[in-house]
């Protein structure tokens, strides 16, 4: 391509995509056995965080200090305290698995945290990369890398099936669609940024900063539900009534079977409605993107199909 706008400018996007794909492929083999065999390592982290937040969670300062003073278990970082609540929350239940989980906690908590920070950095950096590119192909490549990193974050949340769907649908199908359209609309833009002038920049950045500040204020205030961090079966049995679609088996959580059971029992109608939405979207996309037809030529009277003959045949 002779256009300098599109010659060799998509290096960082390809680098991000290749790096993220390589990291994802290498990490899936490392995370998956640890999740399938024994107590998950991320959950050990979450149990410990739950212990800390449970002590910090309730109410105002006075009740917090009173509660902390009443706690007989001493420092909250102590392993005995952790083991006690971990035993209550453990989903596997057998002592051997708990021991494995305890042993893994000291080994892998920092590495799981490092993984989270790595992929959080990839998500944030990739999305910033996307919205700052002038070259659209480069933006799409950064988008694919961002979607891979988001898929890893989904896998950290034990949504394995949705992580796979994320890679297949987003990084595969939707991004290919974007690439096709970008190839059709191959035209560099003159002025990529919308905010022009000092006043516009100030207003836009101020509005964004305000929105982000409110978002952070809301999100930092979210408290995890006490006692329901890990024990899916326990919470589904005791506190939450087990809905027909909810999975009570911890081993199925986030798997294809679990998502399918939820989709085909309690969410069957939305599932079918989504199929209809997709069909209508395909038809609508074809109807909208079809090239404009020429205005209808004048059909002389007397010819079958003309206006006069149609009118006469109707009357």
């Amino acid at each position: 391509m002779t256009d300098p706008q599109y010659s060799g400018r998509c290096g960082p996007g390809r680098f991000i995509t290749a790096l993220s794909a390589a990291i994802v492929v290498s990490l899936v083999g490392w995370i998956a056995p640890a999740h399938g065999s024994n107590a998950p390592t991320l959950d050990s982290d979450l149990i410990e965080a739950q212990n800390q937040r449970e002590l910090k969670a309730p109410g105002d300062q006075t009740s917090r200090t009173a509660r902390r003073g009443d706690q007989p278990s001493g420092p909250m970082q102590e392993s005995g305290d952790l083991r006690a609540s971990g035993a209550g929350l453990d989903q596997t239940g057998s002592p051997r698995d708990r021991n494995v989980g305890q042993r893994k906690l000291s080994e892998t908590s920092s590495s799981v945290a490092a993984l989270f920070w790595l992929f959080a950095l990839m998500v944030v950096g990739g999305s910033i990369f996307v919205i700052t590119r002038r070259n659209l192909i480069s933006a799409v490549m950064g988008m694919v890398g961002t979607f891979f990193a988001i898929a890893v974050v989904y896998a950290m949340l034990y949504a394995h099936f949705l992580a796979a769907i994320q890679v297949l649908v987003y990084a595969g199908a939707i991004m290919v669609l974007f690439v096709f359209v970008i190839m059709i609309l191959n035209k560099p833009e003159a002025e990529p940024w919308s905010a022009s002038g000092l006043l516009g920049k100030v207003v836009v950045l101020g509005a964004l900063a305000y929105l982000l500040a409110r978002l952070f204020m809301v999100l930092w205030g979210v408290e995890p539900l006490p006692g329901s961090l890990l024990a899916i079966s326990a919470t589904s049995d005791t506190t939450t009534p087990a809905a027909p679609g909810a999975i009570v088996d911890g081993a199925d959580w986030g798997s294809t079977r679990g998502v399918g059971r939820a989709l085909f029992t309690s969410y069957l109608f939305p599932f079918e409605a989504v199929s209809l939405v997709l069909l209508i979207a395909v038809v609508g996309a074809v109807a909208v993107a079809r090239p404009h037809e020429r205005p209808p030529v004048h059909i002389p009277e007397g010819v079958p199909g003309g206006p006069k003959s149609r009118q006469s045949s109707r009357s």
């Binding site: 769907i165 961090l229 679609g245 679990g258 059971r261 939820a262 599932f271 997709l278 979207a281 909208v288």
Partner: peptide, 28 residues
């Protein structure tokens, strides 16, 4: 994950499907 409810995954699945439809129509 926080509430231990698998139905959120069904909702996320539907969101992904609707996002695919939105991308198709929007790009058209």
């Amino acid at each position: 994950r926080m509430h231990g409810d698998m139905r959120g995954h069904a909702l996320a699945f539907i969101v992904i499907a609707v996002a695919a439809a939105e991308a198709a129509v929007g790009l058209a």
